[in-house]
Every structure is written in structure tokens, then in C-alpha cells.
């Protein structure tokens, strides 16, 4: 597979380490009253779609950036990639 790194262009997927669903960006508040329930959901449950999946890849043998790659899990077609940090910052912006 080839991953379109937003800064470095098409890179071989072997340069990356895969983590999983990009929902892992949305870490619950560990000090909230319902933290145990929300963390159980966050840590263990997955949508696991057959179709477009937003997922985390780490450019381990590259620039060490975490990417969010949009990929179809049925066809493996890649629809785009963003820096996870940008996405995380943007979602902070929305939250505020």
C-alpha cells in the first residue's frame, strides 16, 4: 500500500505503524464522574466499518508524524490523509 503523506507525498505503508480507529483521538475526561464507563467505550469498542475508515498511522520510519488516513476497508482505496495533530487541534477549536 502507499500512503499519501500530507508533507512527504506517497510513502510506502511499510514505513508506518498502524494503530487503529481515529476515534482514539477523542480521549474522554479522566476526571469526569462517568470516566470509567466512557473509558471502557473509548478503549474497547470500535465501529469497525466495512467501508470508509478513519485510522491512525505513525510514520515510524519517517518523520514520526501521526496521520489520520481515510481508507476503504473493503477495497483498500485511500481517500486522503491528514496530520493527526492538525485534526486534533481543529477539534479543540470546535470544542471551544
Amino acid at each position: 500500500m502507499l500512503i499519501p503523506h500530507p508533507l512527504l507525498g506517497l510513502r510506502d505503508a511499510q514505513e508506518f505503524t498502524y494503530l487503529g480507529d481515529a476515534a482514539l483521538l477523542d480521549r474522554p475526561d479522566g476526571l469526569a464522574a462517568d470516566a470509567e464507563a466512557s473509558f471502557a467505550d473509548y478503549v474497547y469498542l470500535r465501529n469497525n466499518p466495512a467501508g470508509v475508515h478513519r485510522e491512525l498511522w505513525f510514520h515510524e520510519h519517517g518523520d514520526r508524524s501521526w496521520l489520520i488516513v481515510k481508507r476503504n476497508t473493503v477495497t483498500h482505496e485511500i481517500l486522503g490523509a491528514e496530520l493527526a495533530r492538525d485534526v486534533a487541534l481543529a477539534s479543540r477549536g470546535e470544542a471551544q
Partner: peptide, 18 residues
């Protein structure tokens, strides 16, 4: 050594980019 560094980068970039 490798996994922990990756984990720390995950926390830095994905959890607490601010």
C-alpha cells in the same frame, strides 16, 4: 524503547496537541 516513544508521540500529537 520503540513502542514507548511511539506512544508518547501519540499522546503529544493526537491527545494533547495544545
Amino acid at each position: 524503547a520503540g513502542p514507548v516513544y511511539r506512544h508518547m508521540e501519540f499522546a503529544r500529537q493526537c491527545l494533547w496537541p495544545e
